[in-house]
Nucleic acid binder design. Structure first.
Lengths: 336, 336
DNA sequence: GTCTAGCACTCTGTGTTCCCGAGTGCCAAG
DNA sequence: CTTGGCACTCGGGAACACAGAGTGCTAGAC
């Protein structure tokens, strides 16, 4: 049905349309890419491609434009991920290496990705549940309140102010801290609920009310903060592009954590793979494309990052940038 | 020069233009606001106002539009800050009261403000230097690295991974922690540099290299993080409005901490006052207006917050919302 | 059978013209 | 000082024509 030349024509159409943002006609196509055939032949192929739904024309007697289905075929079979230049790789490396803490890593990553791709970059904070407890700290604020701080091996710090049910002196807090750390140090966060289940029984009865409150806050922290935090950068890159769904919707989606989460969300069962969702394949924002991947070292996938842009984007370049940034940030996080 | 009726005309022009977004003509003006004079009279007044530079016409034979100078006069002399409704106040209160930590307070505040004003809201994190040290924590990661955590009375937590110049055992770290806390607990951050200046001398010689490294990181944290962190929300509200300077520039400014800082920056010497900067009065973004104020309890101003929008905004309502939110967030922070 | 050249056809986008109406400035009278 | 009257000015929309790009189709060439 689709011979090699027709595929070449589709590839050429996608490439031209992405770079010019104008419907591409048979004549220009036959000239610019040396297809060795005449415009008339190209027209026949185009008619076939349109028949199959890979391209469409905005109106009669205009050039052709790829459909979502056309981009899909292009991404799956007609393009190769384009690696970054050596200079770009060096720039990424040195920029990320300068980060001082987890917040900084994430901020730098998202900005870097936005700049490299000239799209909107989105980065999810490393997931709590897959990391392990490094330390639990209880800091007395006054005699009824303490600050509860949880530090994970990924460098993430979670904090909560806890209102205690009764006055608790410093010694008891120190004791609680010691017990908690002894119990939790090095444990995976996902196993925390089981570990703390029988903890109260191992404490003196007078410690139990306070311990119960603290533990409930701890569990709450794990559940609520699960993987909610997502940041984006590069919104200015939206200004030029025109979206099927309207700029406003895109900006709104970017500020809705839940929507962003779903957009980044993994599809395949191999989280480290590069996923590309094109147009209507996305939930919510049907007029945009999302290129995303998991990051984190090997077996231990921490979270996801990617970029969001118009369906008319340079997929090979974007995919290369996303993949490269994910690798580097994984390295950085593994090292710290 | 400008009698009462001319001022009333200016006020009416601003109000009409803000609500309709169309140049306002003499006839409509005379009708809608009961000025008790004829359109011809209004025209004379308008000519005078234009002469003085308070209004202008986009082209001959169109209605009038306020200039920056006109908005300025309106804000200074012709309008009153519009208080929020009781329902709105209750909503603010309950929404902010649900916050669990400082991050959450800031996030909720900025979203709330964006929603209330239907503009872009900007909130600066509470300044470190004006708060006091609540606790310093050193968490061993391995024998050459520790995580340094600084907790302030405003609930802010700063963290850094510190690479030590030599292997340091837990006991020594515990000792350092105790000394640091004894020295710093309750001190204002601005006085920290002096306080730690002679600290090394009070330590055993073998502790000094590690202590020096940690202290340098502490000082660095104070300096670098000074008041850099700023967040915004409500970018979607930009989609409708049209900016003199172009949407792209505004979005770019929002992602530049430095620019944002300058835009929020205080002008008067009373930081708690509501400041309004209109159009060209702003640095960088000459086509926008910024309504901002400091927040924090009374004498202890922590940082600034505000909104950014087109010069054509409803100043009385916006100012009311900014002021109210600043008050409530100050309360919340003072209580915690 | 596949490719090519030629040709008639169909659109969009652009430029032109025209006209209506909102709004103005000015002037003379109340 | 205010008001009604009046001529004037432009912007913006409607109607129209037109050039140009691109297409589909058909008949002939390889």
């Amino acid at each position: 049905m689709l011979d090699d030349r027709k595929l070449a024509v589709l590839r050429a159409i996608v490439e031209d349309y992405v770079s010019t943002n104008e419907p591409v006609g048979s004549k220009a196509l036959a000239e610019r890419h040396n297809l060795k055939v005449s415009p008339a032949t190209v027209r026949n192929d185009m008619a076939a491609l349109e028949e199959e739904g890979y391209i469409t024309q905005p109106h009669t007697s205009a050039g052709r434009v790829p459909t979502d289905k056309g981009y899909r075929l292009f991404v799956d079979r007609l393009s190769q991920v384009k690696p970054l230049s050596a200079a770009e790789r060096r720039a990424i490396e040195s920029f990320l290496a300068g980060a001082v803490d987890l917040d900084d890593v994430v901020t730098r990553t998202v900005r870097l990705l936005a700049q490299l791709t000239r799209q909107v970059a989105v980065v999810q904070y490393p997931t709590l549940t897959r990391s392990t407890v490094r330390h639990v700290e209880l800091v007395p604020l006054n005699d009824r309140r303490i600050m509860f701080v949880l530090i994970t091996n990924t460098g993430r710090v979670e904090q909560r102010v806890v209102e205690l049910p009764e006055v608790v002196d410093e010694a008891r807090i120190a004791h609680l801290r010691a017990v908690l750390n002894a119990c939790l140090d090095g444990c995976g966060l996902s196993s925390v609920p089981e570990l703390v289940a029988d903890l109260p029984e191992r404490l003196a009865p007078e410690d139990r009310p306070a311990a119960a409150t603290i533990l409930s806050v701890l569990l709450e922290t794990l559940v609520e903060r699960h993987d909610e935090k997502i940041v984006f950068a590069g919104a200015a890159n939206l200004a030029g592009a025109d979206f099927a769904t309207g700029l406003r919707d895109v900006l709104e989606a970017l500020e809705e954590q839940v929507v962003l989460m779903r957009l980044l969300g993994e599809t395949s069962d191999t989280p480290s793979a590069l996923t590309v969702r094109i147009g209507a394949e996305n939930p919510y924002l049907r007029g945009t494309s999302v290129v995303a991947t998991g990051y984190g070292s090997g077996d231990n996938q921490l979270a996801r990052l990617g970029v969001l842009g118009p369906t008319r984007m340079d997929y090979p370049v974007t995919m290369g940038a996303v993949r490269a940034v994910a690798r580097y940030v994984s390295q950085i996080l593994a090292a710290s």
